[in-house]
Design a binder for these strands. Structure first.
Lengths: 339, 339
DNA sequence: CTGAAAGCGCTAACAA
DNA sequence: TTGTTAGCGCTTTCAG
């Protein structure tokens, strides 16, 4: 329980604590011989500078906090990996906290990090709800913050987001080009901006290509494989299957494919399926999943870089990075005779 | 940049800082009227107690650190979720740090957490290597630490591990019972205890059932789908395919299945495949993957509970929880005519 | 019920 | 090149 402190080291060597401090921060003049001696004995004694005390006096940790809704899916895990890659090179350590998709938990996490142990923080919000105002106040007070993913484009802050509307539009158009005639969009929960944006993109494509109202539909489904399976089962039961599904994410798409296959439908010959995000698994299943690649690594990297800029200069103008994706054409949406 | 401190609040109300402190910790006698007033104005001013300072004087945060090799695969992500579930109920916040499979990074992470911002720490080590000694020293010094997963059974510390040897043995026996006659084990990297333990279990089963040496083999493969694919391609090229694969994890197994299918082999009729871990995806692919379920949630939960015990009483005897898994029998290892 | 003051471990002027 | 000392923001005894 007892930490060895700078004092213990100083006493042992009969020198002052400031000399020990200098040895560990090697930026003040100090005889290299004493420095070596100090470092050596300190290590022997098992001394390690207490970061808490350091922070309190220096007003600087070299920690960056990252708050995400969850990291059980690859999406945020990959973003975090990218953030870490950039910031570790610059001498920072990364502390990650999960909000569990709970805005209150998110707020607490951010508070702990920002008031306590982090010089800056990257937030992937759960919702673009009430917390945002608090965050903006913190930014104004000088705390570097960068937002990622689930934020409104209009938010005046450093942020990196994905152009969900556009790529949902493109994904839908891909299905249309494959001559699928009746397309259902299995959407994410409607309280997510990313969800509504994808719905918008889907509808836009439908309108552009003049699909009659009865030939397309948006079904609020969710983000889990199970939820996709349930919806498909229900549609089968009601004899209301479309000839293509555009799913909110890959996991839902995989659930859809599985249920379709189990019920004797061939994907993509009978029914096409399109995912969103491009997870690792999407090319390991059969048929391989056609999807939209979201540049998770790029998102993380850019967020980290925006944060570094803020750390260097607190008064820069907020920047927004809107990222593009890529259609990953694979079997699951390939109609055999699309003539 | 300027935080509002306890001093500012005290000055504003013309009271002492200790009174303000009391108001926020409501454990000392304080007139409820003054308390309310303080809390109210403090909130208005945007005051939030600085956790760093709190920790320095109290020697207690309510943070628990969790250090894992990575959380891009479900395995550790699920463990973390379980830990969080237990500890949040007890008023702790969880700080997660990734070691990136690098022992040095791991050591730094642990140091930051333990000396700095965490009352206790759960470590899922990258290797059971040199760092362990340092950790044991910390435990002796009174820092609560619990180990998870990649640790030797002989380590005298609080830990929760999985009985890899046993379940690797059972997995192998399952393949044997299915009458597969030539079985290759695609092993994890050999410097991982979990890897060598699974190899041991595999060999033990082979010996028990008197498989001739030429009918089984251990191939160091890794933990990625790509690595599984490469090995299978190589075996196909060398005309050295077995009639069953027992893979180090599900991801490798999925890579194996994919490559086999692409090369015209039927799984499980021509070749059986068995995974390890039971990821979400394993039942979404076809054929569904037969695997061993590792109780990730249970592991996290128990680790958290062991930590809580240590937090309450620093001098308890170290406990070891060795967990069992479960065979999840699915298509990929079902031989049609196993008579 | 409230205030004064010491101290948590460290940094960073300022002296020497 | 080294030592002395005043904080960093908070808790917690000890007086009052």
């Amino acid at each position: 329980m007892k930490h060895i402190t700078i004092k213990d080291v100083a006493k042992k060597l009969n020198i002052s604590i400031s000399t020990v401090s200098r040895a560990f921060n090697n930026k003040y003049d100090i005889k290299s011989k004493t420095k070596d001696l100090i470092l050596k004995t300190a290590t022997e004694m098992g001394y390690f500078p207490n970061p808490i005390a350091k922070k309190l006096s220096q007003q600087k940790t070299f920690n960056i906090g990252v708050v995400v809704p969850e990291f059980i899916t690859e999406f945020y895990a990959e973003i975090i990996v990218a953030i870490q890659e950039v910031l570790i090179k610059r001498g920072f350590q990364i502390l990650v906290m999960q909000s569990d998709n709970q805005p209150e938990t998110e707020l607490n996490n951010v508070k702990t990090l920002i008031y306590g142990m982090a010089d800056g923080i990257i937030i992937a919000p759960t919702l673009d709800g009430d917390n945002i105002e608090f965050y903006l106040k913190q930014i104004k007070a000088g705390h570097p913050i960068v937002f990622v993913n689930r934020v409104r484009e209009s938010l005046n802050a450093n942020k990196v987001i994905f152009d969900n509307k556009k790529w949902s539009f493109f994904a839908t158009e891909h299905l249309i080009r494959q001559k699928y005639k009746k397309i259902y969009h299995l959407a994410a929960y409607k309280n997510l901006t990313v969800g509504t944006d994808r719905i918008d993109g889907f509808k836009k494509a439908m309108k552009k290509h003049k699909f009659p109202e009865e030939n397309y539909q948006v079904i609020e489904t969710g983000l889990l494989a199970k939820e996709g399976m349930d919806v498909v089962e229900d549609l089968i039961y009601r004899h209301d299957l479309p000839d293509a599904f555009f799913c909110a994410n890959d996991l839902v798409a995989m659930g859809v494919i599985k249920t379709l296959k189990e019920n004797g439908y061939n994907v993509p010959n009978d029914i096409g399926v399109m995912g969103f995000t491009d997870t690792q698994m999407s090319e390991l299943i059969s048929p391989q999943l056609c999807t939209v690649k979201q540049p998770t690594f790029e998102m993380g990297k850019l967020a980290a870089e925006l944060l570094l800029k803020q750390l260097d200069n607190h008064n820069i103008e907020p920047e927004t990075k809107i990222l593009n994706g890529k259609l990953i054409i694979r079997e699951s949406s390939k109609r055999p005779n699309n003539n």
